[in-house]
Amino acid sequence: MSVVPAQAMPGMPKAGAPVEEAGGAVPRPADAAPAPLVAPAPLAASARLLPALAAVYRAQLSRARVARIPLLFVATFQSIGIMVLMRGVVDEGGSAARSVVAGSSVLVVAFVALNLLAQYFGQLRASGGLDHYATLPVPPAAVVLGAAAAYASFTVPGTAVTAVVGSALFQLPMGHLWVLAAVIPLSGAALAGLGAALGLLAPRQELATLLGQLGMSAALLLGVLPADRMPEVVSYARDLLPSTYGVEALARSFDGQPDWLAVCADLGVCAGVAVVSLAAATWAYRRAAVR
């Protein structure tokens, strides 16, 4: 018995050569073609950044109803509790009172955006939930920014309530509380980026939780306690924490005649840190998604 290669047989089409079809119009199915090289199939469209971001944001926000509202209460009551506690040692109306109210308000942001987001991404990474996003044609930035924006949004009611209650408790003017409209998104973005990066970079889920908790404790201690009574080393640490600048901006707004330039400078630092930390979080997401 002899085996003759197809190419050697007269009249046989060569592998890879175009094959005449009887109908002409109907293409042969790819698997029936003898050649291994088939034209690559067209790729489906990718999701664009903004629509994908909006979809992730909406989905994350809807999670609030299921999972986040109890935690939001905890965050708010924690901050209000701290202010009630501090009311005993801090005089109303003074600069210390301003730091306490501003620090407690921003603490709500730190609790949700930093701590909870770090936990969320840590859990998502550990359980393999990131695979879901990694197998969708979605820009990494959309996932990170969408989640960060949603977590920052969760903090709005708690932060506003804390600021109003604190202002009433310490007899501070509420006229400039609208500054919160800039403080929450900017410090929220900075802390959420940090939280997401911590959650995605932590080698283990427990470590992500721990880092989130530590970040929140830092925001609590360094933000709520008046800065002028801190040891020098600690005040350096305070300068490194992104939430500090949100706290400062809010504290300044309690003055009768706020120094708007300084407020803007503080918010500018917040915005700068937000850009850096969100970029870091996006990089961390890319790294975590493809292992």
Binding site: A44, L124, G129, D131, A134
Partner: peptide
């Protein structure tokens, strides 16, 4: 891959 295939993983956390 994400533009060619739909994937169902074992985990639903997301």
């Amino acid at each position: 891959a994400s533009r060619l295939l739909g994937y169902l993983g074992q985990d639903s956390t997301a």
